[in-house]
Simulated scan of single mutants.
Amino acid sequence: MRDRESFLAQPSVAAFMAWLAELLPTLPVRLRFARSKFVPGGIDTSVSGIEAVLAHYRWRAHWCDPRTSK
């Protein structure tokens, strides 16, 4: 498959995406990260769903916009 549309149109790929879309909101996930300079307090929690993972999974990082230098 050369292009994205052809790839996504395959029945097996479409079935996988449908399965994953149904699973992700309720997926049980255990997050365990040791304390580090990027995760100062560490993380040790269990959550349900990918949105809950995103709410807990934060790295200490910095980003500078090259246009504004902020």
Rank of each mutant, 00 (worst) to 15 (best):
S46Q: 15
H56V: 00
Y57W: 10
A52E: 02
V53T: 02
E51R: 13
V47R: 05
V47E: 04
I43E: 01
F33L: 14
V47D: 03
W63N: 03
L27W: 11
V29A: 01
F33K: 09
A52P: 00
V47S: 03
V39F: 10
H62G: 08
A34D: 15
L31W: 08
P28Q: 06
K37I: 11
F38L: 15
R35A: 15
R60E: 04
D44K: 10
R32Y: 09
Y57D: 11
R30E: 15
W59A: 10
K37Q: 13
A61E: 07
R32D: 14
W63K: 02
L31E: 12
H62T: 07
I43C: 03
Y57N: 05
R30T: 15
E51C: 04
R30I: 11
H62D: 07
A34I: 09
R35H: 06
F33V: 15
L31D: 09
A55S: 14
F38T: 14
S48T: 12
D44P: 08
G42D: 10
V29L: 11
L27K: 00
I50E: 00
Y57F: 12
T45V: 15
F38Y: 15
A34E: 15
W59T: 05
R35Y: 01
S48Y: 04
R35G: 12
R60T: 08
L31F: 11
R32P: 02
G42T: 04
A61R: 08
R58Y: 03
F33D: 05
A52V: 02
D44Y: 09
P28Y: 00
V29M: 14
I50Y: 04
L31S: 12
W63E: 04
G42C: 05
H62N: 04
Y57M: 07
S36N: 11
S48A: 12
S46W: 10
H62A: 10
P40L: 04
R60P: 00
A34H: 14
P28A: 06
R30D: 15
G42L: 01
V39H: 00
S36R: 04
G49T: 00
R58G: 10
I43F: 06
T45E: 14
R60W: 07
G42K: 06
V29E: 07
A52K: 10
V47L: 01
R32S: 14
R32I: 11
V39Q: 00
A55F: 01
L31H: 05
S48N: 07
